[in-house]
Design a protein around this nucleic acid. Structure first.
Lengths: 226, 226
DNA sequence: CGCCTTGTTGTACGAACGTTCAACAAGGCG
DNA sequence: CGCCTTGTTGAACGTTCGTACAACAAGGCG
């Protein structure tokens, strides 16, 4: 306000240097920033908010940057999908595997219970997250590239869950169709998640988690007892 | 080809009459045509295909007609929602009620089995239908008008299902939380439907129906025995 | 047969879309 | 300090979007 000089600061001799108007970032850093901004747009406004203008504004960069770092807006959507699914689902798998490997006295039912519980944590079982997934599901049904990525990642998650189920059922001598039970469990979780987000009066996250545990416990026995 | 006359047919005297270029329809007829065309667009291309141009082309009318019969494109989407949900869900309820009223020797478990079975009929449990619903769900989460309509209709369906469950469980002396079971059943159906449409190798409609019956039969006893 | 109502058409318009690209500048290097 | 690489900008373009509206015509009526 009171200053009349051409630039707020001039370091080391330069008399005409103006402050940087932007900062250069490494390619993968900028890509991550754009993916995160795009994800935020999806969670707020659904697929209708997935536009160049809004994403760039959300990321605080200019309009040209998306097409510089991604082949197209569609390519960015694929990356958003991989990022979202990979982060939420594959991290669950990795954590489950890690626990089983590291902790020797970690019981199979505790591992399964942890995996089940993680499905209902606020990070995953949230309104924001569902809007992202509704958008992605709608695109998966139409976009072959997304469809292929979806199958691969979901298969991995289903297999991990089935493995954890079998690890509980077999020692208990229970005859369980683990892959089918895993598939039904995932369907139940997704369905409850959907119902809750469209009308929060139908079910609470706690009740949803209880329903998920009950489905599994009906076949493999108790999982949650102290 | 061989004819050189100005018009293919001229009835009763007129010499300069050309054939009608369009036909006038009653307002509600035209509205239905547009709603159906819009629904077809949704089922093919998702929400991205829900545009004035595509819907009018699909309906075989000119661009101006949607804004003449509906307040806006958004208003048309609400009508599509009501039409889809009303047709699929409320018809199930109506049919169930009708069966119960008309057929005196219609057992409660047969009524429930019929209602369950209808969820997996190709009319409802189809790829086309899911794309419509993914689009609508994505909009429900964002559009207050759609959200209100959704709650009302889904509540009615859940209540009907719970009633049918209780009608089976109570005479059998089983202590069942019918509303909760109904809610979980709907979630399972929607989840399996979603999984199947995104990757048909995960589950078949027959297996999905079996899973649905098993969830209910685990609490109220056999429903399908011949 | 001609008028009149109104359903229908098709153009026009501004806004927003995705993409392209020439110009710019930040930061590393000699 | 000046060059060079390259991440970044922002204008420009053609397309498509939703809406508005004047002109048109189909079908009913006297």
């Amino acid at each position: 306000m009171t200053e009349a000089g051409p630039s707020p600061e001039k370091r080391k001799r330069g008399a005409k240097k103006s402050p940087p108007r932007f900062s250069r970032e490494q390619a993968d850093v900028r890509r991550s920033m754009l993916i995160e901004a795009a994800t935020r747009c999806l969670s707020v406004g659904g697929i209708g908010a997935f536009t160049i203008d809004r994403i760039c504004k959300e990321a605080g960069v200019s309009r040209g940057l998306i097409n510089h770092h991604f082949e197209s807006l569609d390519g960015l959507l694929v990356e958003v999908y991989k990022s979202s699914l990979y982060a939420s689902v594959n991290n669950q798998i990795a954590e489950a595997k890690r626990r089983r490997a590291e902790t020797s006295d970690w019981s199979p039912q505790a591992a399964l219970a942890a995996l089940v519980h993680s499905n209902f944590s606020p990070d995953y079982f949230s309104r924001d997250n569902l809007l992202i997934w509704l958008s992605l599901w709608g695109e998966i049904a139409v976009n072959p590239r997304l469809k292929a990525a979806h199958r691969e990642l979901y298969d991995a998650y289903r297999a991990e869950l089935a493995e954890d189920i079998a690890a509980v059922a077999v020692p208990r001598g229970r005859d369980v169709d683990a892959p089918t039970l895993a598939r039904n469990f995932i369907a139940l979780v997704d369905g409850l998640w959907l119902e809750w987000c469209l009308d929060e009066s139908v079910v609470t996250p706690q009740a949803a988690e209880a329903a998920g545990f009950e489905m599994l416990e009906g076949q493999v026995g108790p999982l949650r007892d102290g």
